[in-house]
Design a protein around this nucleic acid. Structure first.
Lengths: 207, 207
DNA sequence: TGCAAATTTAAACACTTGTTTAATTTAAAC
DNA sequence: GTTTAAATTAAACAAGTGTTTAAATTTGCA
């Protein structure tokens, strides 16, 4: 937390290369060149390449925290579900290459130790949706037997699938540009996820 | 296609290391040692490390093809949807570390050229589900305005999310062993996805 | 202004990477 | 049994890896 200008230069350069090439095939020299900085500065400021990744996680992961303030004011309803999903997708989609990178790197067993901040993010975001759904079930607004963890997995997975198969899906859906793809995610895909979850929460013989 | 014994040894060794460490941080020497083979044999048989990955894709991807024979005999119904999803998850879950590896590697821009067989797999599997859903819509069994590509993304994404966040989800769901996790996927998760898709296909004001 | 700490640098370090070479062994064909 | 091709080997190759060093420069403070 609290990085100086030079550190930020390095982090930005790392971000650009990590997200396009992956962590392992990005060299510290590449990063140094991209950041217009001497190679040794990376070890000086971050200790090691792994330390840089560690700092990168700390630096970027807070962007993906759902803020619950606005939601906490709303009464439990399907509209609240819509709002929450919209917030969710917006948060992740605003830096989708970064989110994809973090999710991929954290999934490798060898990197498990580094993924603590990512774990905290997932717990926070899962709690947000769980609270809302459980409250709705308790009040009888949503049908019971719905598992918030599974619904959360479905939402996250559907979004991530769009990150990991962009080339394929862009072709399948006839989307021309990267920008249009982003728009599709924030409109059509968001609406689809909203519909899906609402269908589940109002599905009588659910589960 | 058609690998001899030595080539298979190499592919099996590569599989073990690729799926646990990723492609970039697995060295050809590691693979050679694991396969009890001279390093040069990898280049002799596969040309290069990239060529090995290429062959690995060709070798394993057919396992994930959904066979449509049994499905084509069934009449269009919600039971057919259940059956299809069951087949889908079973096919992917039987070698889930391999599927995760392929999906991750194919998602890196730098590896796009290699992912042609994966692309073909995705098209085949997407067509399988699309055909069934579109037939159901045409016959009025399923509600219209359902987008098969989105439903497919949802199913794939939900499954993949379980692959990429195993440690996290195992803890969240209180699952003890890796085997139990696999069982959970083939029972509870499969049922959840079935329910979700059926809820969508019978949701009146869908989309 | 002087001094100590922090920053920055080029060079070197030790090691790993994927690949190739040239020699040797094994197998198949005539 | 000789010849030709395929398979296998250890060694070398050239380039790249993350990291450290020790010297030089800059900075902040008394």
């Amino acid at each position: 937390m609290g990085f100086n200008e030079k550190q930020t230069d390095i982090l930005l350069a790392a971000e650009k290369l990590f997200t396009t090439q992956g962590f392992d095939s990005t060299s510290v020299r590449d990063i140094a060149t991209e950041a217009n900085v001497n190679v040794a500065m990376i070890n000086y400021y971050f200790g090691s390449k792994d330390g840089l990744l560690d700092s990168f996680f700390e630096w970027r992961i807070p962007d993906f925290m759902i803020d619950t303030e606005e939601l906490s004011l709303m009464e439990c309803s399907l509209e609240k579900i819509d709002k929450m999903i919209e917030k969710y997708i917006k948060a992740m989609n605003s830096h989708r290459e970064i989110y994809r990178f973090i999710a991929i790197e954290s999934s490798l067993k060898r990197r498990m130790l580094l993924s603590e901040p990512f774990s905290k993010l997932k717990i926070h975001n899962l709690n947000t949706i769980s609270t809302i759904i459980n409250e709705g079930i308790a009040k009888g607004v949503f049908s019971a037997n719905n598992n918030p963890t599974l619904i959360h997995s479905m939402m996250m997975g559907t979004f991530m699938n769009f990150q990991m198969n962009q080339v394929f899906l862009q072709e399948q859906l006839g989307i021309e540009s990267d920008d249009d793809y982003g728009i599709y995610i924030e409109t059509t895909l968001t609406h689809f996820i909203q519909t899906t979850i609402k269908a589940l929460l109002t599905y009588e013989i659910s589960m």
